[in-house]
């Protein structure tokens, strides 16, 4: 059952739309209608983000198809993504 939302197909994080406990399957649809799943690596509070794939330390966190910060540590697929493992980085104007 769908319990998460991803905004852009380029995003590497999605948002849980209900409280999801560790070990539960997180399921979302990409904009093309394909269903994807990953197992929650920890508890994900409602409306919090999780990684839809493994993200390396220093890699950009992508939501809305844009950069919202950088991974401050390696993040596994299904892991909670929030202030404990994301650094805010101001980007240069193009």
């Amino acid at each position: 059952m769908r319990n998460a939302v991803i905004i852009s197909e380029n995003d590497n994080v999605a948002v849980a739309v209900e409280h999801v406990s560790r070990g539960t399957l997180l399921t979302w649809l990409t904009p093309d209608g394909t269903e994807h799943s990953v197992t929650a690596a920890g508890d994900i509070p409602i409306y919090h983000k999780f990684a839809v794939r493994d993200i390396a330390e220093g890699e950009k966190i992508v939501k809305y198809g844009e950069h919202i910060g950088e991974a401050g540590a390696p993040i596994r697929a299904g892991e909670h993504v929030h202030i404990h493992n994301v650094t805010s980085v101001r980007e240069k104007l193009v």
Binding site: H67, H82, S88
Partner: peptide
């Protein structure tokens, strides 16, 4: 500005960075 944003209420609600809040 980053010192006040996102606010504690925003963070509790799942918003991590000012960029994320701004894009939303």
């Amino acid at each position: 500005v980053r010192n006040g944003n996102p606010s504690p209420g925003n963070i509790a609600g799942g918003i991590t960075t000012l960029e994320e809040k701004s894009l939303g």
